[in-house]
Each structure stands twice: as structure tokens, then as C-alpha cells.
């Protein structure tokens, strides 16, 4: 795994220096930049922000968006909201598992996709939907899945 250059994250700490309650925005930006929040980054953030390491870990483990594991190139979120559930989200999830040969939360062997289930994405009129990175794909059926993931 590539070594993370911690000082390359300094611009993020500078950006939020003046803001009150900046821990969560800082973690968001770091994760966006390097994809995850490993222990050495947490330790660095603790020093930079003057916040106890235990508190930082507590926040990371509380919120489902933060991850301490590296993710694949693309993240697939399968919506498990009510409307999607009623319209067959489980079939979509099962087909994705089959196609990608991974379970929820895992990353494919070629590091291309990480699959997660998400809370309602609020695009219920297109149910069932999945979100790949920030793009929503709607009105899905299990049969359409290969076509969608082949685009990536």
C-alpha cells in the first residue's frame, strides 16, 4: 500500500483552522482526498487539531460514511430505502453480489468497486436505484445491472 504523505494534508487543516467544530469537515475532506482514514492519519489529525485520538476514533466509528479501510476506485451504494425495498432492491443487491463476486462492504479483487448499502437516497420515484460515486442510476432491474457496471 502506498505510503501516505501526511504533510500533504496540511492544506485541509489550514482551510478549517478558524472554524468552530471543524473535526467532521476535516475528516470528510481527508477521506475525499485519500479515500479512507487509517490510524496514522487519525494520529496526525489529533496532533494538528489538538483533539484526543480517542475522540477522533469515536467520531469515525460512529458515522457510517467514515471508513478506516481503503476503498475501490468506485463506490456503489445500493439504496435500501422503503420505496426501493418495496420495488425489489434485494434482487438488485443479489445480482451485484453475483456479478462482482463480493459481499456488502467488500472491494473487488481488481480494486475497481466497493459495494455498500445506503440509506434512502431520496430518488424514490426512480426506485429501485443505486448510486455509483455521485451518479444515481434508477428504474433498475437485476437484468440491467451488467450494463450499468460495464460503463465504469
Amino acid at each position: 500500500m502506498a505510503v501516505i504523505k501526511l504533510s500533504a494534508l496540511d492544506h485541509i487543516f489550514e482551510k478549517y483552522e478558524e472554524k468552530k467544530g471543524n473535526l467532521i469537515p476535516v475528516l470528510h475532506d481527508i477521506q475525499e482526498e485519500i479515500g479512507y482514514l487509517p490510524v496514522e492519519v487519525q494520529r496526525y489529525a489529533s496532533k494538528k487539531l489538538g483533539v484526543a485520538m480517542s475522540k477522533i476514533y469515536g467520531v469515525i466509528s460512529f458515522y457510517s460514511f467514515f471508513t478506516t479501510e481503503p476503498k475501490g476506485e468506485h463506490t456503489i451504494g445500493v439504496c435500501m430505502g422503503t420505496a426501493c425495498y418495496v420495488k425489489g432492491a434485494e434482487d438488485i443487491l443479489n445480482r451485484l453480489k453475483e456479478e462482482l463476486e463480493i459481499e456488502t462492504g467488500q472491494t473487488t479483487a481488481d480494486n475497481k468497486f466497493t459495494m455498500t448499502v445506503t440509506r434512502c437516497l431520496g430518488t424514490c420515484s426512480m426506485a429501485p436505484v443505486i448510486m455509483i460515486d455521485e451518479q444515481v442510476h434508477g428504474n433498475l432491474t437485476a437484468a440491467k445491472i451488467p450494463e450499468v457496471i460495464n460503463k465504469y
Binding site: 472554524k19 467532521i24 469537515p25 475528516l27 470528510h28 460512529f62 458515522y63 457510517s64 460514511f65 467514515f66 440509506r119
Partner: peptide
């Protein structure tokens, strides 16, 4: 200011 949640 906008603050973004983190999935809770």
C-alpha cells in the same frame, strides 16, 4: 455555512 453529515 453548510455542514455535511456523515451518515447517521
Amino acid at each position: 455555512e453548510v455542514r455535511v453529515g456523515a451518515g447517521a
